[in-house]
Design a protein around this nucleic acid. Structure first.
Lengths: 145, 145
DNA sequence: GAAGATACACCGAACTTCGTACTATTCAAG
DNA sequence: CTTGAATAGTACGAAGTTCGGTGTATCTTC
């Protein structure tokens, strides 16, 4: 009998890496000099960075939270000057969200920080392994059902 | 010049996988019939599962939150009947945390759910790739500085 | 042009986190 | 011993977060 399925212990390794990185992300942010953003707020910020002009409802669906919750998050981000609300002429009920210059800056810094963490995560791997790992990650992402 | 370092785009793949799984975890829990636990509460629960008899302060250090926050989380978990506090004779200031039978059950169900998610995550990979990926994850974990 | 659908925002209740202050116990000298 | 400092944890209250119900403005459709 050929061993085709991963054992539970092997699968657990994925969970551990995931946990490890959850804690590291959090720690890295706590260490930074700036007052750290809310978890949700960060996610909204990245969503807007990826989809400029999106509406609050889009990000609510994507992040799986109530619309009113996104409304609050948007308020906070606007108050901090990271994003702005615009009224599109096409549909004046809607709101279109955009990063401000400061918001773009914040996103850049966040991405740099994550990049650094990921780089360190890859430290114990050889160059060939790194390339393999990245390749598998891309397969996993693009397979997204 | 040999390409030894991953590019930013390659590194971003790690972040995307991470995000993808954050959302999936959340979604999977929201779908379950049971009232989902708080993020922190789940982490405390797993910590106690891994280190039975640990004190609240241990998990506070590990999870990087204030002691009082762990105290609240512990209250909630005790109230739901998932863990119990005991006074060790050795040091009667201390509290030792243990899973109840129901708590163990909850942990088992959570792990089963995560295992299933991880299994699906590995779907698009070949058997050889899976084994490689797991091996790299283990390297990353054991390298933990 | 009226009825219904859609996109949001406001409000208030319930919950979470955490700093301050407090209790109980142990440790360390003297 | 016993007294003073250190340690483990909890009670309480302030500030912040999430979300359901409700309200307003704007399309859409017939």
């Amino acid at each position: 009998m050929v061993m085709t399925m991963p054992t539970d212990e092997e699968l657990a390794a994925l969970g551990e890496v995931f946990d490890l990185f959850t804690r590291r992300y959090k720690l890295a942010e706590a260490l930074g000099p700036e007052k750290p953003l809310n978890e949700l707020d960060k996610q909204v910020l990245s969503y807007v960075a990826r989809y400029p002009g999106c509406g609050p409802t889009d990000s609510a669906r994507f992040l799986n939270v109530a619309n009113t919750t996104i409304s609050s998050a948007t308020d906070r981000l606007v108050k901090r000057g990271l994003i702005e609300r615009r009224r599109p002429e096409a549909d004046r009920r809607a709101v279109a969200l955009y990063l401000t210059a400061e918001g773009q800056d914040k996103v850049d810094r966040l991405l740099a920080m994550y990049g650094e963490l990921h780089r360190r995560m890859l430290d114990p791997l050889s160059v060939a392994e790194r390339r393999q790992l990245i390749g598998m990650m891309q397969k996993i992402i693009y397979h997204d059902p």
